[in-house]
Amino acid sequence: MSNTAQTPWQDIEPLLSVQQLSKFYAPGKGCGDVSFDLYPGEVLGIVGESGSGKSTLLNSLSARLAPDAGKVIYRSEQFGELDLYAGEESLRRQLMRSEWGIVHQHAADGLRMNVSAGANIGERLMAIGERHYGDIRARAEQWLQAVEIDSNRIDDKPAQFSGGMQQRLQIARNLVTHPRLIFMDEPTGGLDVSVQARLLDLLRTLVAQLGLSVIIVTHDLAVARLLAHRLMVMRRGEVVESGLTDQVLDDPQHPYTQLLVSSILQN
């Protein structure tokens, strides 16, 4: 099947504009000179081997890691056009719990493990001022169902959930405030293949239903093919190739991408 984007991107303004973004811990360790635009409803995959700088880039894009150079411009519903790192930290944190969602590779980093599933989902609602317990709980139940978790598990703690359920709970916790832009770092990492498939399916459905824009980091090209409209291939901190997913995977131009694609074909 094809993920080729149908929308005429040219007519709309990008949601996120990234300009010469760089963040290096040491030479070759980090990410450098990254520029791209992300349009509403678009799913961008960032692929590359371990240590290539995918997470560094994602963290810089999602306002969690100040870059050494470059800019991230985000067009906010509430605040208009924002130069992310030029503004106040309070603004960035406000974005993170309203218009954005962040799905971590390790559920423990994205969930509050010591409170119930319902509280995990309700937290963002309470953070934006909801004060009606009954409403908050009803919304939490709806979102559990939306991510295919039985709503009678609402009072269980995340530790009582399987790995796949924890990831789905993380997604529900983010989506409850209807964010427009989701950042995901290896959301299927560490899960069994069948569990992965179910999660990917759910993600695809939600992204399509809610018209979400997504930036997803993965080293798994199968995941990238299934979810992403466009791909950026990273190597040693640099983007070596980018384009529509099918083009990049079926007709890779850069020798590194060719290697990456052939190695997945081998196993």
Binding site: S116, M126, I128
Partner: peptide, 15 residues
Amino acid sequence: EYGAMQVKLYEDVAR
């Protein structure tokens, strides 16, 4: 950022 504080009360009512 006091949403987390309300979480404590939520847990009480849930339990």
